[in-house]
Design a protein around this nucleic acid. Structure first.
Ligand SMILES: [Mn+2]
Ligand SMILES: [Mn+2]
Ligand SMILES: [Zn+2]
Ligand SMILES: [Zn+2]
Lengths: 146, 146
DNA sequence: TTGACAAACGCAACCAGGTTGCAATAATGA
DNA sequence: TCATTATTGCAACCTGGTTGCGTTTGTCAA
């Protein structure tokens, strides 16, 4: 059973409808390895022959977010991206040159600062975002040759 | 000498003009303790009697960013904020309830993961952003009473 | 299979943040 | 004071995102 079918089954079991958009969107998300913007999703669906209005995509993203299946990713350019939730916990490397996004898994201890923050300031952390901005290996190579 | 005068002097020494907008903007930035959005700055300047067009503010922010005096801060709501650069290195706590932004200084070791990332993936980190999203002490108090 | 019903949808209009081209203005040093 | 050029205002534009509302469609029970 494909990963997207697992998700569809879960939605169905909660009484939600399995629409063309919903199926296609989850398919796309399962095939991706890095976060994407909503307008990009509209284009990707169109390329698959699924012509869907941007309003629908935004509403569907909100729905999938509520259902805990996708979440937002904020990177250095201020644009909102989405990726499948329930992946191995990881963080992002954003190349400020070519805008490529890659992933990195960090040591648990780095993610465990929440407790220290709670003690220090009383702030109850729900989530964190650790993003690194810099130059990816490919661009670094290119720059050295210029 | 006020902090903003130091910055103005530096700009002047590089041959840049000291305009009304520039002075007022640096004054405002020096008086703030957390990052602000561009439209907020337009309003704050207006409240000080400095009526300035939003285009000018955006251009001035780009200028001050190039000059290394302010930088962008991206938080959980996807809006771009700016704050004075050259502060003690710190990170942000974003209350998802009241949207308040506070600051926290983390252990150096947490910020030093860049080397590990370089070894692991070849990605050359220039900057990082570590943001925490959760409930601030005030809101936490309020929620407990409801 | 059919129909009722609510969920999902498309569309148009709208909003906010941000950008651009260009002509007018103002800070500077001579 | 004047020339030079950085800075500014304005209008028009762009993109991402939202809203209201009437229509379509997925689901399930008859
Ligand atoms: Mn990711
Ligand atoms: Mn800060
Ligand atoms: Zn790159
Ligand atoms: Zn709060």
């Amino acid at each position: 059973m494909a990963q997207s079918d697992v998700l569809l089954t879960e939605l169905k079991s909660h009484g939600y409808r399995l629409t063309r958009t919903r199926r296609a969107l989850l398919d796309v998300f399962c095939s991706l390895t890095c976060p994407v913007q909503a307008p990009e999703l509209v284009a990707m669906l169109a390329a698959l022959g699924v012509l869907v209005n941007k309003t629908t995509v935004y509403r569907e993203l909100a729905f999938l977010e509520r259902a805990g299946m996708v979440h937002r990713v904020l990177l250095a350019d201020g644009l909102t991206r989405y990726e499948l939730a329930r992946q191995e916990h990881h963080h992002h490397l954003f190349c400020v040159r070519c805008k490529a996004v890659s992933r990195v898994c960090l040591d648990d201890s780095i993610c465990a600062v929440s407790d220290a923050i709670r003690r220090q300031s009383g702030f109850r952390t729900i989530a964190h975002s650790i993003e690194f901005f810099g130059i990816c290996p490919r661009c670094d190579e290119g720059e050295r040759q210029e």
